[in-house]
Write a protein that binds this DNA or RNA. Structure first.
Length: 729
DNA sequence: CGAAAGGCTCTTTTT
DNA sequence: GAGCCTTTCG
């Protein structure tokens, strides 16, 4: 069988050019994943390359899993030896194996974002600065940016140019110390330390170079400088490096992704073959043209010749809702209609939004209507308190030096160990240069001295905790992760503690869900299972858990939607301040990234795109009137439908053309005096809600907001120009 | 020491 | 609206 038989010429070239560097520039829907999988299959099946010699790096674990299952089908051989994963997980594996020469404990734990923030606060405190004055988030992202360029604290301080950078440098210094004392690495460390390991230990690098004869990197436009450096290191010997990306889909510059990587690739590898994938197999002509017009408004880009053989399809639908409630209602009702008409089923529809906060109202309305949905990252599972608590216990078992975890669980459930005691414990650990846990192990001895540091009952609590942990550590050597988890919730009394809380039942469910995750690591030999489990739960992306086979509408951020496709896509919140986000207003480069984000959203769709905007939206408590997104103006009129009569009678008030030049029944006055013929007490009739009485009337811009108590439908707030109220006498 | 209540600041996007 | 921090009281 010819593995490459069903690829088009460009795809085929991309897949079979296996010697030397290759840069694949792949537009959306151009069969990029197909090319990568076929290329690997070709290497294995046709060229006889062992999977052992291949490494493929993806952006998410989900992408890696998908690639693996496609490959399994394509090759029919075992892929156990294939190295496949995210940069972070690949690096974690390398460091666990070979990090010791850099003083990295093989038992290191990985600190996630919130651990990192906590540690930065600690560092600020340690150097006598106020966490309120220096936003830990800002410092964390500055440190992250430094690490993404392999800049350590000393270098950073050396080149600091402002007072803020000076502060960051000093925090960075202390932060690194704290990480070291805890035997912990943050996300960026995984990459940076691996690069440094390779730089400082050529023999180790040599081993990996010898092994990885073929490298593939997906989503190359979203790699940062350190990741690129890693690619160059690993590929230096064989130079069989294949990178795949699309500059127009670069949406992670805030995470230090650097488009220069794509631009420099051809410089660093002058012999590189460049392959363009320009045929789109995903979307209708109208959708593709809409996207092309939108992205063409960006100045900093090279134009591509994207085209498709697909049919023209329907026009992109523009919809205006009055409030975010109605926006959500419109989406749900429209989806129900699509399902009823057999246009699509639930699983084929996705709702995309700019910020996670927007998902809440959508979720509420989906629940209210009883429409099944899949929310990618609600309150993200691994960030839930009870889940983090259990993970902290497990991390502490794996690595008792981990002070962030120790701090989290030492008094959970309450053991009478409070602030004072902890402060003393930390002082002692500083004084004796021991980890807090090591101090705990020596409490009894300390208490025998002339000046015992703790009251006897406190000392007893501390010793009790230390003994409990030792018991769990011993147990971890011989039992699987699931049993260990069970033992933890049992022996620490965490289960009882949780169930005694008001919402304990639900939260206990989450612990059980974590336990289900642990079952996947069950057949690993005891200590390795724990390490693998902890790594697995730390390096997950939310989108990893998205189950595409389950039915239900997908609710997802635009960022997470990258790499996915759906027959029907709703993009909600098409408003100035949301998309583009307000934070991008004063920076043209960021504004272009917002446009790319919108481009990514539209190009997810196969058949139908709805762009939905809301007139009045509540944000952080207060309510604002939002202007339509400037991106809507980038789309030519002939590709847009909107302003025609609403599809369903019910959503008459919610659905509206975004460019309502002449609202049909509006009689706004704009001088604070609402429409003359409707005032509080007026009897009115609404197409969907029926008869009611106006409760209040308030001028908003050049329109009026009326609150109406309907006989059947309850109290609604409506915009006079949209609601098409009729007076009833 | 710890629970409860009140006040404060924010939120972009995530491996 | 929500989480985080501080304050207050038992």
């Amino acid at each position: 069988m010819d593995i490459l038989a069903d690829l088009n010429p460009a795809q085929k070239q991309a897949a079979e050019t296996i010697n030397g560097p290759v840069l694949i520039l792949a537009g959306p829907g151009s069969g990029k994943t197909r090319v990568i999988t076929h290329r690997i299959a070709y290497l294995i099946r046709v060229c006889g390359v062992s999977p052992h010699h291949i490494i493929a790096v993806t952006f998410t674990n989900k992408a890696a899993r998908e690639m693996e299952s496609r490959l399994a089908r394509l090759t029919g051989t075992s892929l156990r030896d294939l190295t496949l994963g995210t940069f972070h997980s690949v690096c974690a594996r390398i460091l666990r194996r070979d990090g010791a020469v850099m003083g990295i404990s093989p038992r290191f734990v990985i600190y996630d974002d919130s651990d990192q923030i906590g540690l930065i606060k600690q560092a600020l405190k340690d150097i006598g600065l106020d966490a309120k004055q220096y936003a830990p988030r800002a410092i964390s992202s500055a440190i992250g940016a430094a690490k993404s360029q392999s800049v350590g604290p000393a270098d950073y301080l050396g080149r600091s140019r402002s007072y803020f950078e000076e502060v960051v440098g000093r925090v960075y210094e202390r932060y690194e110390q704290l990480l070291g004392e805890s035997s912990a690495l943050d996300f960026d460390d995984l990459l940076m330390k691996t690069v440094r390991l390779f730089r400082e230990h050529p023999a180790i690098l040599g081993r990996y170079q010898a092994r990885f004869q073929h490298l593939l990197v997906d989503e190359f436009q979203d790699t940062n400088l350190v990741q690129y450096e890693l690619v160059r290191q690993l590929g230096a010997r064989h130079r069989n490096i294949c990178v795949v990306g699309d500059p127009d889909q670069s949406i992670y510059s805030w995470r230090s992704a650097d488009l220069r990587n794509i631009l420099n690739f051809e410089k660093d590898f002058p012999e590189a073959k460049v392959v363009l994938l320009e045929q789109n197999y995903r979307s209708t002509k109208n959708i593709l043209e809409t996207a092309a017009n939108l992205i063409a408004a960006n100045q900093q880009r090279k134009d591509k010749g994207l085209w498709t053989d697909n049919e023209a399809g329907e026009l992109v639908k523009l919809v205006e809702a009055y409030t975010e409630q109605e926006e959500a209602q419109f989406v749900v009702r429209e989806i129900e209609q699509l399902v009823e008409n057999d246009t699509a089923n639930l699983g084929e529809c996705a709702v995309l939004y700019r910020t996670n906060a927007q998902s809440r109202i959508l979720e509420e309305v989906f629940v209210r209507y009883g429409t099944p949905y899949k929310l990618v990252a609600g309150t993200r599972f691994y960030e839930r308190r009870e889940v983090k608590d259990i993970i902290a216990y497990l991390r502490l078992i794996q690595n008792p030096q981990d002070s962030v975890s120790l701090l989290r669980v030492i008094n959970l459930p309450g053991r009478g160990i409070g602030q004072q005691t902890l402060a003393k414990l930390f002082d002692l650990s500083q004084l004796y240069s021991l980890s807090q846990f090591e101090v705990l192990l020596r409490i009894s001895k300390l208490q025998e001295s002339d000046d015992p540091p703790f009251y006897p009952h406190i000392a007893r609590a501390l010793v009790g905790f230390a003994e409990l942990m030792q018991e769990l550590i011993a147990a971890s050597q011989e039992m699987g992760v699931v049993e260990l988890l069970d033992l933890v919730v049992e022996r620490t009394a965490y289960r009882d503690f949780l169930l005694s809380q008001p919402d304990g039942e639900d939260r206990w469910e989450n612990v059980l869900e974590l336990r289900t995750v642990a079952q996947q690591y069950h057949d690993l030999i005891p200590p390795e299972g724990l390490a693998a489990f902890l790594e697995g739960v730390t390096l997950v992306a939310d989108v990893d858990s998205l189950d595409e086979t389950a039915s239900g509408v997908t609710l997802i951020t635009l960022h997470q939607a990258k790499g996915l496709e759906f027959p029907v896509v709703f993009i909600v919140g098409m408003e100035e301040g949301i998309l583009p986000h307000i934070k991008s207003f004063d920076d043209p480069a960021q504004m272009e990234e917002e446009r790319r984000l919108c481009y990514v959203g539209i190009t997810r769709a196969k058949r139908l795109v709805y762009l939905v905007r809301t007139f009045r939206r509540s944000l952080m408590g207060s309510s604002n009137v939002n202007q339509p997104s400037r991106f809507l103006a980038d789309i030519p009129r002939h590709l847009i439908s909107g302003g025609e009569k609403p599809r369903s009678k019910e959503s008459a008030a919610a659905v509206y053309s975004w460019n309502r030049s002449a609202p049909p029944d509006a009689t706004p006055s704009g001088n604070g005096d609402p429409a003359p013929d409707v005032k509080a007490g007026s009897r009115v009739r609404h197409a969907a809600f029926g008869d009611g009485v106006v409760v209040s009337c308030q001028a908003v811009d050049d329109d009026a907001e009326v609150v109406v108590a309907f006989r059947g439908a309850g109290v609604k707030k409506l915009l006079l120009s949209f609601a098409r109220l009729e007076r009833v006498e």
